[in-house]
Design a protein around this nucleic acid. Structure first.
Lengths: 208, 208
DNA sequence: GCAAGCTTTATTGTATACAGAGAGGATGAA
DNA sequence: TTCATCCTCTCTGTATACAATAAAGCTTGC
């Protein structure tokens, strides 16, 4: 992907994930290119890339809109993500490289602090950072890429969490990391899988 | 994705998967657009989409080339695919819808015949059809899409199989389908996972 | 007052045009 | 010959222009 297209894509993705662009909202190429000060070409390429990731829907001759994630799709995403996060944690536990573990510890510490006081956006960013670093720890690039895409799509559906859920999140993160450090593959996998299900259940409960 | 871009993309994907375009081969936009009788725009969009699927690499200012799948990437792909095919077969066994099962039986029958006499391309097509229909049987669209992408990438690495392996393939397909029909989730998952590993091992063995 | 058909307008899909970066080759010196 | 430098030329990245479609609004007939 080229420079401008990448910048534009990141910008749009950011706005979508931040809730600044709502699901269902139309993404008109002219408007976006005017806002960003580029021509329509990079915008089109960015939208196409986002549609391949499932963040944007493109209907022929009707254009792009922010993807609407139905409850069925959420269930599907969660099922696949839970399995893959399990594998990922298992692999991370298998390797448990010291410097990656150190980075995870750092993220964990900041996450725990942020869970008490920081605004939801900062929490979301730290959450993303933890999962991203855990993905690196598995040393499986294919897995990491698939998971990142699925993570973006779920966070599109889940919006921002409550503070009580944030505390739970980081408790569970701590458990996963402890298992990874111990090299306990089974436990790491179990906790990571359960973590995904728990987050989904908490969201479903909060919106019941 | 738009009409022409889709056509162009399917055309290029077909040539890549058929081995007509070799890994590492450069994909020059001008040349492709001239060959296909379209402008560079649909070609660019098609290449971008293919790069998002991992079939094509795009380097900034250097353009696109058919992805080269390293042995490490193959191992990563196989690990993820094996797990997901397992989940998929498990879900298929859970539902075992009669008309999808009937379709799978049909594909299986034709696959068994083809394994004896048909050319490799026809075998590859039937193999793809079996896995595609099995994916439908899981009723998880997210899972199906991820798996299709991974399947394309592995077949890019594995090229075409020998006839003896083809017979094995279809024996294993039969086993998976039988477990699906029985509603035996555990067995279906086990066999599907093993099927992916077996195919990979057979290829690695043949190229040792 | 309402519906059907036409017209206009907004927006996508495709083509063409142009600028700039990188690769490869030619030229010259050691 | 071999290496460095410059030039050229190919190709990408971005912009602009044009064509075509679908939606919205308006007009007209009943």
């Amino acid at each position: 992907m080229t420079s401008l297209s990448k910048v534009v894509g990141d910008s749009i993705r950011g706005k979508i994930l931040a809730g600044q662009l709502r699901p269902g909202e139309r993404l008109v190429e002219d408007r976006l290119s005017a806002e960003l000060g580029v021509s329509r070409v990079p915008v089109r390429e960015a939208l196409l890339a986002l549609s391949m990731q499932g963040l944007v829907n493109i209907e022929p001759r009707r254009g792009a809109s922010v993807a609407e994630v139905t409850p069925e799709t959420v269930a599907e995403l969660v099922e696949v993500r839970a399995l893959l996060e399990g594998l990922n944690a298992r692999l991370a536990a298998r390797h448990h490289e010291p410097n990656i573990v150190a980075q995870l510890r750092d993220t964990l510490r900041r996450g725990n602090e942020a869970a008490e006081s920081s605004p939801p956006e900062a929490l979301a960013r730290l959450n993303s950072e933890f999962h991203e670093r855990l993905a690196v720890a598995s040393r499986n690039v294919v897995l990491s890429e698939v998971m990142r895409s699925l993570r973006d799509r779920t966070s599109l559906a889940f919006a921002l969490n409550s503070r009580t859920r944030a505390r739970e999140d980081w408790k569970e993160h701590a458990g996963i990391l402890a298992a990874v450090i111990d090299g306990d593959e089974e436990l790491a996998a179990l906790l990571a899988t359960r973590h995904v299900h728990n987050a989904a259940a908490a969201f479903a409960g909060a919106n019941a």
